[in-house]
Design a protein around this nucleic acid. Sequence first.
DNA 1: AAATCTTCGAATAAATTGGTCGACAATTCG
DNA 2: CGAATTGTCGACCAATTTATTCGAAGATTT
Lengths: 193, 193
Amino acid sequence: MINKEEIRKKIIITAGEIFSHYGFKKTTMDEIAKALKMGKSSIYYYFQGKEQIFEAVVLNEANILRNELTTSIKSVDSPIEKMRNYVFVRMKAFEKLSNYYNAIFDKNLDHFDFIETIRAKYDREELAILRLILYHGARRKVFNVTNSEYTALAVQTTLKGLEVPLFWKKKEVNIEHRLNAILDVLFNGILKK
Amino acid sequence: MINKEEIRKKIIITAGEIFSHYGFKKTTMDEIAKALKMGKSSIYYYFQGKEQIFEAVVLNEANILRNELTTSIKSVDSPIEKMRNYVFVRMKAFEKLSNYYNAIFDKNLDHFDFIETIRAKYDREELAILRLILYHGARRKVFNVTNSEYTALAVQTTLKGLEVPLFWKKKEVNIEHRLNAILDVLFNGILKK
DNA sequence: AAATCTTCGAATAAATTGGTCGACAATTCG
DNA sequence: CGAATTGTCGACCAATTTATTCGAAGATTT
């Protein structure tokens, strides 16, 4: 029991890289095992199955995003307008990725419906897209989008669901609550706590 | 018989995009068909099989690369040193991608051995890598690598096989011959004419 | 040296996949 | 028109792939 948790972490990282490239379905246990230089069966000592690994990966990624949001928001103690701008960027990224989703699956959803759809279907393929979103969103700074890429309307739509929990609340609501409000909008129903 | 060749082209393009992301093995006919909004069986009206599509894709990509090389080399009618530099960049890209290959398959080949290996094995997985190389090489300008990414030694090695056909020949050898010499080194044995 | 933790090869049941075939729709041609 | 040709596709299949299991055997700890 020297490093069981270490190895679990390693599996999460390695599998995460493969998942993020190939998606859930196209990623095989053989592949993960090979990347880990580990017998395939051994993985089952650390995780119940492929789905559990994937879940751990998504959860891990969500936590990273959560932390980044936390520290980042905390570092902005300036007027609320700044924070609003900050969230703009985040939400724009989400919108971009929902467009990506729409293109792939030939849908036409704004990104809130999009998230809702994923939650409802809970389909593996689409979870893979979610994984992609989280990965790109948290790690690869897809965030940095120029304003010209988005119309004013798109930005409005973007804020539609977010303004309520974030900006309509009283000022004395502390930063943690605001953060949770954002995260609730972003992840509500998708990720287990 | 309005547009049979058109559709073939479309299949090549679409399949190419999928192949370049997922590789040969992970790309399914269903997927290609779906991307084309076409019945899977219909594809077999245009191509004998998956392998033939892949071949057409690689060939198509190679032709693009070939053309780009042709026009690009032709446009440089300046001293030979310039052309040498030009080829540097190309070959560095190849080296980069063979490193990529080494990392994936846990090998340790320079990029000439690497190309030779692919030719020898003619394995589908590895052909997919080749596809990736051609795609990135020709279309996505992976070419633009900074000098710092490569040691002087690497550059030397890079030129190892190329100098002979390209620079040791007499000056009066025309541009077409030089181009073919490069292409022979790059693709010798891999691609059918 | 017993008990527990960890690894893995072999086996398997279920799912996926490339490809086929015949029916049928669309187009061309006489 | 109508028949020949061209093009599309759903249903099906054999072969392969894949996630998962299991028991045996290495390690490590007690």
